[in-house]
Design a protein around this nucleic acid. Sequence first.
RNA 1: GGGCGCGUAGCUCAGUGGGAGAGCGCUCGCUUCACACGCGAGAGGUCGCUGGUUCGAGCCCAGCCGUGCCCACCA
Length: 865
Amino acid sequence: MSDLEQKTRYNPSEVEPRIVDRWLESGIFHPEPEGTAAENYSIAIPPPNVTGVLHMGHALNNSVQDCLVRRARAKGRRTKWIFGTDHAGIATQTQVERELKSLGTSREELGRDQFVARVWAWRERYGYQIVEQLKRLGASCDYQEERFTLDPAYADAVLKVFVDLYEKGYIYRDRYMVNWDPGSRSAISDLEVEDREVTDTLYYVDYPLESGSGAITVATVRPETMLADVAIAVNPQDERYRRLIGETAILPLVGRRLRIIADDYVKTDFGTGALKITPGHDPNDFEIGRRHGLPHPSVIGEDGRITDEAPERFAGMTVAEAQDGVVAELREQGLVSRIESYDHTVPFSHRSGERVEPLISLQWFMRMDELAKPAIEAVRSGRVRFFPQRWAKVYLDWMENIRPWCISRQLWWGHQIPVWYRDGDTHVGTEPPDGEGWERDPDVLDTWFSSALWPFATLGWPEQTSELKAFYPTDALVTGRDIIFLWVARMVMQGLEFMGEVPFSDVHITSIIQAPDGRRMSKSLGTGIDPLELINGGERPPVFETGGTFPAYGSDAVRWGLLVMSSGQDVRFSEDKVAQGQQLTNKLWNASRLILLRVDPGVRADVRPKTVEDRWILSRLARARQEVGGRIERYDFARAALELYDFVYGELCDWYLELVKPRLYEGDADTAATLLHVLTETLAMAHPLIPFVTEEIYSYIPGAEGLLAGRVDPGFPGERDEQAEAALADAITAVQAVRAWRDSAEVRPSAVLPARLAASGYTELEGQLARLTRLELDGSNGGSDVAAVAAVPVPRGAVEILASEHVDVGAAERKQSAKRAELTAEIERAQRKLDNPGFVHKAPAQVVQGERDKLAALKTELEAL
RNA sequence: GGGCGCGUAGCUCAGUGGGAGAGCGCUCGCUUCACACGCGAGAGGUCGCUGGUUCGAGCCCAGCCGUGCCCACCA
């Protein structure tokens, strides 16, 4: 134990990796699948992208989950944190394609099989990075049962779900307008589209009437799409155009005849009131086209270039080139009557960042309305609860207006759709059809389709495994609000559909941590902060104006800091909070050193209170244990973290350890036993929040067995002791009052002053009061004969300071008069309140009495001055 | 256009009906035998604005101002 002597600072870099190894070797993170889900506790991790790296969102999210999971273990529940990674279709494919490009090749050149093999190799190379990072963070996942969304068993589950839903009529294939992402050259779902504010040019274009009597003017921000116009629509009520309905206009540059049709969709007070209809390239026009039975030619291809359905001179151009070309020709012909700058929102691909091209395409869709019904009911009835609650409304609003989901993606990395075609025949099944000539659908499923099965597919479904019985449904889901629709909602729907039970009962939506300057944390913006740089030390990114490097804060500090930052609101990252966490670990370390270096190695932790301060700390510990544990269970991690900090600093270290030092130095066995008990229970209480330092200290506690991470809480936290709490509260107030007075009287800190205690109720604590304030209260300095030079008010009386060379009476007096004014004001306020009949009659008796007591106390204090 | 948040000490944030809080920063003082990543003592807030409800409002209600996010098919 001699090494403790040397280590005056806690060094997380040395300790934490060692502790991780001990945990992993112990096997305590892997529960055997026994019992039922109702008895056990489980959480399914939001699977990180297999080739991803840990970012701040992961760090927070997993700190939260680890806190819950460690708390559950301490309560003695069989606990499983279901672990694994996601194949992340687009993200992973994009990474590999980028590499191919740098090598001068492409996926097309490699061919599908080669390419997919290449992605698997990529996964082998980078897939363990994030796993190791989670271990470093201290996340106590069941790493022995790691899942991957492309594992053979998982893939079987995905295909089975597809086939089942197809057979139920929920999944169908349709030629429909989709969001085409030219970046990934795939369709994407509505949820993967983000609107961005863009300044475009609005062109007013004259379309000549066939009759030769003038023209009809339309406004458009996308003149290039006019090449696919099939009609012009006006509102049937619009007096300006009513006579033109049924007439024909001529599409400039193309020469196509466009019927002028009437549709209520068209706003009379917007643009020119005449709308060009391009069903192939605009979602609204597509709907209008359907209503009017119009064709929907396409002039923009999936490669983002103009097709040969357009006049030959435009074919092959990019969209931007085509726009320039079209506008130039229209200008030449004098058909652009006006242009103006126009701000509006435009869809962009969330993944590739490219402007989404609405295209008509043959895709697989999933009808969601039937599946949504029970999922809505599950939240309405409270079988699934959101924390904070307001997110339930967000979920419900979306669910109630749910639309079909485009589930096919034109990628190669993912679950290939289990559908085969031959001539006009279609085979849908988990196995390929018999016979020759069948061709499999080349598309893969949206990654979220497989993620939606995560809580049960990870446990062996569709087999009826003991894992499923033991751990489904899970207890909590912890995630960010950005994937409530993408993931949470879909898990609820699929869980209900295939397991007949919700996948989790609680959904905790975490805060989002922004960069210190308030911007979104993002790699591309340069605003990201790498959690591992905080843990291990590293260069401060440019978002920090201070520059320099992070000290190696350690995981505990980062975890504590993140938890205390995330009280439910979005919050700016604050390095100070991480530093505060580090100080907490160091404080706990040193408090433990004080105890462990002084207690006799033969002593064992036990509850053997001898004094009022012993009873006080036991009472405060009981309160803190209840508070910290309760806060964690209510998903109030910020408060749990602060409660812990306040107990360790404000009660254990500032007061109890100071009070108990003399007895500790004397080697009193009862004191040592009680101290060990308090320390052990403090460590246990703190462990879910700061697991490393607590585990490390625990290993030094005499008689402590096994790992703290595997220790089951003894349960009942103990009784509160009101009498001891009141006595110490007064003593603390008194000590602080005397210290403040000493400071104001400019008394040297080391000087011992003769004084007299003229207050009641301090018998048990008089000696401590004297020691902590450096007063001599034993009466040997003259007793009642000597005149007091000052009186320091304390609860129920005063401490009278006797004449001494150390006292600067003048300085003290100046301070005292300020204090007197303050007291007088407060007395007046309390008196006024009590003089108010409304208050006395209507306020609760307890409150009125409290005010009376306060007034009396204030008066006593003023008198003592 | 609709919805949900937020505006409290110089900074980052707690605080949901009864005497305004924390961390950091700042001031003063301490090499007190666990910790100078420490200890003790302080300074510093018309709780965005305006009304209302209440005996009592940072907290509840209404409006306004500022700010952020989500949803939504106005060319």
